[in-house]
Write a protein that binds this DNA or RNA. Structure first.
Lengths: 146, 146
DNA sequence: CTAAACATTCATTCGTAATACATGTTATTT
DNA sequence: AAATAACATGTATTACGAATGAATGTTTAG
């Protein structure tokens, strides 16, 4: 279970902008700071603009900045717009589901509930909080690797 | 955000065995019932055996059956053993993390908490419950597709 | 001894995330 | 008006790992 690097990069861009709220930042500056592919960031920034998280301006002295205050944008909201999907099981997508027991097993609703719990946590946190130093780690339940 | 088909198939195998608790079932029977690749199931079953979820017996009249009662095996436990990892962000794996802000941002702890909430829900449900008909859907928080 | 079953390893396919590239559009500056 | 610096947008390529396939080994019942 992973988020895409795309979501990861999207959050990093918004975090950087949160630190410099109000200022205009260029993609090149972001790529240099994070030491990641400028080409990939181009797409990430483009998408963030389309979804209204950032305001973009072209031309000389152009760049990007947060379109809304950092304390009004939740992490959950961002992730919902950047992840391609949240289809945990085959049966989550009725278009492609071919499982023969979809109608008689309740795994789907269990995973639905788990997914909701996941998103709910992320909806409680804003970019402003994420940009602050981590207060502690919430890893109360250890994850075992198979 | 997805689980692997491998985890999906693992759960399906255990669900089938839950329905036939005590009986011995062959991989071929499972593949026929679910109409999925027998080769893939071979691996799934092998892994479930290694991790103690099922008891396997070779030779004529061999097969597999649950190694523990269905009501004692939680969905969360299974998923933890079948998913390759739960590394939601690059910074989740210190071995490969190259993010330059890992130490000053708190996204990691937020995602940790969300992940714990996710697993916690799945730890509440057993295979016995999953094998029963779904009572309802818990989809309280709608997921938007980017 | 044979057949039926799982055990185990290796090889291949395939989807898609990740990346790279090329060209277009806009706006500022001189 | 021209040059430049920035984002916009679409296309192509690469790379990784999940998914699948195949082959051989081992065990057990009859």
């Amino acid at each position: 279970m992973r988020l895409t690097l795309y979501s990861d990069y999207s959050l990093r861009v918004l975090l950087y902008l949160s630190h410099k709220e109000g200022e205009t930042v260029t993609i090149t500056e972001l790529a240099d700071f994070y030491k990641i592919s400028r080409n990939h960031l181009v797409k990430v920034v483009h998408n963030l603009g389309i979804n209204g998280f950032i305001a973009t301006s072209r031309g000389k002295h152009g760049g990007i900045r947060l379109a809304r205050p950092a304390h009004e944008i939740t992490v959950g909201e961002v992730v919902r717009y950047t992840e391609p999907d949240f289809d945990l099981l085959e049966c989550f997508n009725p278009e492609t589901d071919q499982c023969v027991i979809t109608n008689t097993c309740s795994l789907k609703s269990m995973l639905f509930e788990a997914r909701s719990a996941f998103i709910k946590v992320l909806d409680r946190y804003t970019l402003a909080e994420a940009a602050a130093k981590a207060p502690s780690e919430f890893r109360s339940i250890p994850i075992l690797q198979g």
